[in-house]
Design a binder for these strands. Sequence first.
DNA 1: AATCGATACATCGATAGACGATGCCTCAGC
DNA 2: GCTGAGGCATCGTCTATCGATGTATCGATT
Lengths: 108, 108
Amino acid sequence: MPQQELLPGTLDLLVLKTLTRGPLHGYGIAQYLLEHSGQLLQVGEGSLYPALQRLLVNGWTEAEWKLTETGRRARVYKLTAAGRKRLKEEEREFERMVGAIQSILRTV
Amino acid sequence: MPQQELLPGTLDLLVLKTLTRGPLHGYGIAQYLLEHSGQLLQVGEGSLYPALQRLLVNGWTEAEWKLTETGRRARVYKLTAAGRKRLKEEEREFERMVGAIQSILRTV
DNA sequence: AATCGATACATCGATAGACGATGCCTCAGC
DNA sequence: GCTGAGGCATCGTCTATCGATGTATCGATT
């Protein structure tokens, strides 16, 4: 039985939101999500990198190869204007859906 | 682009919760979710019936063929004790995950 | 000098779940 | 006789998550 680390369909949203804090590379995004969720959101690499590709292809982000302070190469992602717009939509949609589900869960 | 009707991974939870109100058939469950979510949770039949099979196979529900008041045959599903336990777990897990995601979304 | 853990990228195959389309049947109402 | 609503179910497609695997560099420890 595979352990569920993530609510499917929310990863793009999480990555986009993380990038509003500034450009960041993949590994850093995973670290950020882990730390700011009480270790709950453990994004596997097999989920994260395909997600980053999706965002790139759709034009929600731009990428650039850089060197980190520790001297390692890293691909740094940056939100585009379209990405910011997309983020807003996904946030709204997420809250709508969660609200709907919770209204069911709270109706006894 | 397929319209997203449901947060993937939440359907079993929704069905289990609906059944706490009493035994119900598939069509009725879909109706209930639709009405009690402001028309937001539109569960397609191609999603619902496989879900009902899952729940049955796992022992979270029991099924019985009955006739409705209008004289149509219907398969009525009922929560088992194991299903109630499972529901509690899924509810907890859902709230945990949503909480984690929202803590990311609200961190500006 | 060798090893190991953390940092950093990426891909692959398996699995799973949501969805649209389709098909069958009955009943009520027009 | 037809249509729409109530009811069941399955099939194929698509998409996404996940675990495993592979490459490589760096710093610290052994």
